[in-house]
Amino acid sequence: MNIPKLQMQSTPGRIGLRINKPEQTIKQHQVEQSIQQPKADMKIEQKPGKLTIDQTKAWHNLDLKNVLVRTEELVGIARDLWMEGLARVSREGDELMRIENGGNPIATQAKRNSVFDFTFSPGGRPTYELIQMNYQPGKAKIDIQRREPMIENKIREPEHHYRPGNVNVSMEQMPDLKIDWKV
């Protein structure tokens, strides 16, 4: 017996894809930056120092003295000479009072008083030790005003370009199914 046979022939379908990839570009530009540093304000006030030099003792050592000092010295010398003179006169008076003890007190006193004793001292040389120096330094006043830096930034946005991709779908081969009976 002949049994009919079913015969099937199929052709698969083929899909074609054409893909365009997306494109993206990003550019980041550098930031523009400006920095300026102003100079600080600085003020310095220096008061002058004070120097005092006292050379009075050096001049006195050379016997160059002012009128007041010279007068004081002469008054002191005169007082000492007056006191010595009083002592001498008193002593001589005591010698004359004892004339009865013998000797010749008047001649002895005349001989002793006839000698003139004189000493002249022109003074020495000035020396460094006799000069008095004093220095008082002046104070410095320093005032500084700090200045902040000036910073400017220009932000630049990034450049962004994007082209989306796409997919084109097409049927390259249509599916097909053929069914046949064969006896």
Rank of each mutant, 00 (worst) to 15 (best):
M83V: 12
D80G: 08
E100D: 14
R156C: 05
N104Q: 03
E95R: 00
K43D: 13
R146Q: 15
N168R: 09
S90E: 03
K21L: 11
T56S: 11
M8K: 10
I106P: 02
I19F: 06
G16W: 03
I179F: 08
Q132V: 06
A140N: 02
Q28V: 13
R146I: 09
A107S: 00
T25F: 04
Y162P: 00
W59V: 03
D80A: 11
T56H: 04
F118W: 01
K43G: 08
G138S: 08
Q173C: 06
E129W: 09
H161K: 07
Y128W: 10
M150E: 15
M133Q: 11
L17I: 12
K57E: 12
Q46S: 06
A110F: 01
E172Q: 15
Y128I: 12
Y162L: 07
T71F: 02
I53D: 02
E157A: 10
T11C: 05
R147Y: 08
R98L: 11
E72Q: 01
P158M: 04
K21M: 11
T52V: 15
E152P: 07
L177Q: 04
P38K: 14
G165A: 14
Y135N: 01
E100T: 04
L81Y: 13
H29C: 05
K5P: 04
P126M: 06
E95N: 00
R125W: 06
N20K: 15
P164K: 09
K139N: 14
Q30S: 14
M42I: 10
D54H: 08
L64A: 06
R18H: 14
S34R: 09
P137T: 02
Q36E: 13
K65M: 02
T71G: 01
S114Q: 05
Y135F: 12
N166S: 15
T25Y: 02
I77P: 01
I3G: 08
N168L: 06
I106A: 04
P126V: 04
Q28I: 10
I15S: 07
N168I: 08
R88T: 02
L51T: 04
I155S: 10
I179V: 12
N134K: 12
D41K: 11
G103P: 00
G49L: 02
A78C: 04
V115L: 03
K39H: 14
F120M: 09
P164D: 07
A87S: 14
L177I: 14
A87W: 04
Q33I: 15
G138P: 02
Q30R: 15
R163Q: 10
V115T: 12
I35C: 10
Q24V: 09
P158E: 03
G102M: 03
I99P: 02
T108K: 01
M97K: 00
G16C: 05
S121N: 14
Q7K: 14
E92C: 01
I155F: 13
Q145C: 08
P175D: 08
E23N: 13
K50M: 10
R70T: 00
R112V: 01
D117G: 07
E100I: 03
M8H: 12
G123Q: 04
P38G: 09
W181P: 07
I53A: 06
K39A: 14
G103T: 04
N113V: 00
L96S: 02
R156K: 09
H160A: 02
L17E: 12
